[in-house]
Write a protein that binds this DNA or RNA. Structure first.
Lengths: 346, 346
DNA sequence: CTTAGCACTCAACAGTAGAGAGTGCTAACA
DNA sequence: TGTTAGCACTCTCTACTGTTGAGTGCTAAG
């Protein structure tokens, strides 16, 4: 069976209409609304063919047709017009983003919010994983007897804090001195690159406090690897409840359960090999391995700093989502985000 | 109409049974299951009285009875046995809590998780608001040309970070010096108590950097008041979906919408005047002003450090919640939490 | 005061009928 | 050969109906 122009038009009409209405699309509707200039009967013939090809399906005998996963795929790959947002809309996003923030956490949070607001889908954004997460500043703050707060500021602007027990005999002054030495030696180094020679240097400068230093380095290492395991921000979680396909409490439970598990989200965002030239990946329906979201699609795009991909943003919606719009928005958004972050790291 | 012993027993039976089954309770059930030793007919008479008194109601003519809000209130105030958890269970909670954590954020988070796990309701915990949120340590970290990271550690162990622009001529050494001076002068002070004389001292020590210092103090102030506006942690948000009264998507949307707004949650937790001697407040059904949760009850308890109330923990469930258990758990939990926090602040 | 008996009410369920949407097939037409 | 009108058919959806069962309120007897 070959795909001719009219078949394409019919499929396009079905997908578009179904995306809009969430109702099966009948032959008459297509004939009238999308003026194909042929009668419903002809459309029906084409639809029978399309069904045979696996691109559309019938929920039940006397219903209209809805796109199959394959149908969406064909639509996304070949039919859909991918018109990027207009200059206007694009600069609107950039402005909005610029306006909303000052701080790292905030950039990500606001990106996520903006994404979900613009699309009415659920947005996922992971925080940038700056690969060379090296140390900018280390500080030991005396807290109470035998307890200190370890502060580590990373190159990426993140701050990690941990409490740490210290021996009684260490004074506040000691802590200060240790901080200074550590700073001198560790600044700009990534944890991985802290080698024995550096350690030896440190030890020789601070003979007495070897134990404290070791304990602390352990904490620093922990902290940095923990930070590297980046957080995923969610926006518009509840938007998904507005979709008619989620009228069932069981489904709601399932999807919200998934959104509650950060680990799972991280996997969802993990960009796939086959991401298009523009870094955009689209996973349709059952293409997602995860059972609970077989009725959903996920669109992801990566964002970068200085040409290096550092994170991913994504949109989660029903399989019947407005791909054209979602893609346009996410594309613009990833660009804007890259720009903002680029400026921050200068 | 007066409340006699038998009426109380009938009401108790109705409340308990309904809490368990979520089904209207009939006269026969009560007679059989709660062996009151009188016939259903007698029970029916009593029920008619109870209904007249507004303590129970009938969803429809031929259904059993369910407790009204007033009925729950009577139950909670006069009928319910408030047996605290056994030694065993109590120490279990304390252990569990001890085991789970090291760090402040963590204490609160884990408390919230534990609460919801134990009760299967949704838990709310606000982070402790240590009233004298004074400054423990201030640090300016040079970040890039003309940008520095301001770190403020508070007495409560919180760390706040902000970026801040700095004039070009200020060097890293300058920043260090400023940090040192500020630390000397500000340590132990709450923002409110930073008076002009302290400022003058600082200015006189750092004549050249007046502008930077002012900008920075502003940031510090902002940061601390922001931290004081404490975060509310949620646990088991989805538990509420397991309750049969939330089978309706609209209701789900409403309640989850509410749980999404931190501001609202803070209000829900705000302990009320009439909190009992033990610091436990119970709001039943429409006693909550907020429309969306008129079908829910909220139990809150305060927790304290060194005798001072510093925060609130709460449980949100359907009006038909297991008050006895919820109260017992929350009571124990607030004690445990106080203990853990007390130890942390020593 | 308690209880048995009884008529009554109402929700829930299953079954049925009719309407409406949409199809597939066939035969006629261009 | 492709297109179209016509028509029988299928299936969902809704409204209506009757039935069942739980539970009540009332009355009169114990």
């Amino acid at each position: 069976m070959k795909m001719n122009e009219r078949k394409k038009k019919v499929l396009l009409a079905i997908v578009q209409d179904y995306i809009q209405t969430a109702e099966p699309v009948g032959s008459r509707t297509i004939s009238k609304k999308y003026n194909l200039k042929v009668s419903p009967a002809t459309i029906r013939n084409e639809m029978a063919d399309l069904e045979e090809m696996g691109l559309i399906e019938q929920p039940h005998t006397s219903a209209g047709r809805i796109p199959s996963n394959l149908g969406y795929r064909y639509y996304v790959d070949s039919l859909m017009e991918r018109n990027p947002l207009s200059q206007n809309q694009e600069s609107h996003i950039q402005n909005e983003l610029n306006q909303r923030l000052k701080q790292m956490d905030n950039v990500i949070l606001q990106t996520s919010k903006l994404l979900s607001e613009l699309t009415q889908y659920t947005s996922l954004v992971d925080s940038p994983k700056i690969s060379l997460n090296s140390i900018k500043h280390v500080q030991l703050v005396p807290f109470q007897l035998q307890q200190a707060l370890v502060l580590v500021v990373t190159e990426s602007g993140g701050v990690v804090q941990r409490f740490m027990p210290i021996p009684e005999e260490i004074t506040a002054d000691d802590l200060n001195r240790i901080s200074q030495v550590l700073n001198k030696r560790l600044q700009g180094k990534s944890v991985a690159s802290i080698r024995k020679d550096i350690l030896d240097d440190i030890y020789s400068e601070l003979v007495r406090q070897k134990k404290v230093i070791n304990a602390m380095l352990e904490i620093v290492e922990q902290a940095l690897t923990a930070e590297a395991e980046n957080k995923v921000y969610l926006g518009g979680t509840l938007n998904i409840l507005n979709q008619p396909e989620f009228k069932d409490v069981e489904k709601i439970k399932q999807i919200l359960g998934i959104l509650d598990e950060e680990e799972v989200l991280r996997n969802l965002l993990a960009p796939t090999l086959q991401s298009g030239a523009d870094g955009i990946t689209i996973k349709i329906g059952t293409e997602n391995k995860l059972a609970g979201i077989s009725g959903c699609s996920i669109i992801t795009a990566t964002y970068s700093v200085e040409g290096q991909q550092v994170g991913t943003i994504g949109l989660l919606g029903p399989t019947r989502m407005d791909y054209a719009k979602a893609i346009a928005v996410i594309e613009t958004m990833s660009k804007s985000l890259s720009k903002v972050l680029g400026a921050m790291y200068k």
